[in-house]
Design a protein around this nucleic acid. Structure first.
Lengths: 208, 208
DNA sequence: ATTATCTATAGATCTATAGATAATGC
DNA sequence: ATTATCTATAGATCTATAGATAATGC
């Protein structure tokens, strides 16, 4: 295997390993030595290519985000002209598929950031989680219409968002039932139905 | 202020500060020096009373858990004889109120454990998250009855669980809208209605 | 006399870098 | 000649502890 002049193969190995280590152990818990070992490269190369741990973290997250965003568009691939209900389905389907992809470490990194922020990704928080919330907001708003109170719409968005980002694999581990595996397709169908039932209930005034 | 012979006041200050620091910065990110500073005690006392950081982490979690479990019973204070629907409401109300209590650090610690487990709390994972899942499982099972497939029931439990544990304050920070605050009572009402609508939809065969 | 608290520090990580080595492209 | 990679290590944290000090209860 020829050594690439720009060390591209090395950079890739580093980013892949870094995303995995940071996802599993958090920013502070993951060490550069661990990332070096996981990627099979020399630890000094991390500083050589990325300057330091913080910049590596940013790059690794960006790497994971870019890949996932390309493969699973946050709007589900449907534009604003599509019916709101179809858009909602697309958003949920894409969000769940994205987070079910075993190669994708983005959600775990974001969850770590959510519960104990490093500050390093503060300026990109507008992406990922916030992206998902934004498109959900739009679809839910179009479904419920202006007759429903702002607050009710916010709550509905929050609930649907929660169902989309829950880290299923980790929950499964707590459950301690390795025989059972949640299938993404089944979860997408279920969450969409659950969400639609909730929204219709709000629309038909099931709420008080 | 008399110095208690058993150092109880000191232990309390340490545990309170430790729960807060570990909740905000994770196990690996929180240092004993930081906890000592936050509690206003000398760092050496942490080893004196708790042996080490890992044992402190366990104790701090246990402290937070015991307090929360006493104040907000996981079954919502209703026993098995109560109607399933009432039990579901009680569970959701208690779970959300518990996680809305600004004094309570249990949920943040558990979320950190979920996304990057330390291994230290492995044997108590049966509590907290798993407790909530267990009672939800029972209530949902009683509402849906044996006519609904096991898988569908699991998915419903997972969805309701997600809505209960979402860390609202942290999400709010991402949202960047400090003028708006989610009220626990409103969220309880909303999540209960959303969940009931979803369950009824499953019962009436809205699925498929 | 006992035990809670503090001071000082040894030893364990961990990150980052200086300087050496080896592989490439010209 | 240039640049990717490796070796060795300095310096920064961080945890844990030994030993000193001070406050309590007998």
């Amino acid at each position: 295997m020829p050594r690439r002049r720009d060390g591209e193969a090395t950079r890739d190995k580093i980013l892949t390993a870094a995303a995995e280590v940071f996802a599993c152990r958090g920013y502070r818990g993951g060490t550069v030595a661990e990332i070096a070992a996981a990627s099979g490269i020399n630890g000094a190369l991390i500083s050589y290519y990325y300057g330091g741990k913080a910049e590596l973290y940013r790059s690794a997250w960006d790497f994971a985000y870019q890949r996932a965003a390309g493969k699973y568009p946050v709007d589900g691939g449907l534009d604003d002209a599509a019916p709101a209900v179809k858009r909602l389905h697309g958003i949920i389907a894409s969000a769940i598929a994205r987070r079910s992809d075993p190669e994708n470490r983005e959600n775990e990194i974001m969850l770590n950031e959510l519960s104990s922020p490093t500050g390093i990704l503060d300026d990109v928080h507008a992406r990922s989680f916030a992206d998902l919330r934004r498109v959900l907001r739009k679809a839910v708003g179009d479904i419920l219409g202006s007759g429903i109170a702002e607050e009710e719409q916010r709550l509905a968005v929050l609930s649907i968002f929660s169902m989309c980002i829950i880290p299923v694999k980790q929950i499964q581990k707590l459950e301690g039932n390795p025989a059972y595996v949640y299938q993404p397709e089944e979860r997408i169908r279920h969450v969409y139905n659950f969400a639609m039932a909730g929204l219709l209930d709000i629309l038909t005034g099931g709420v008080k």
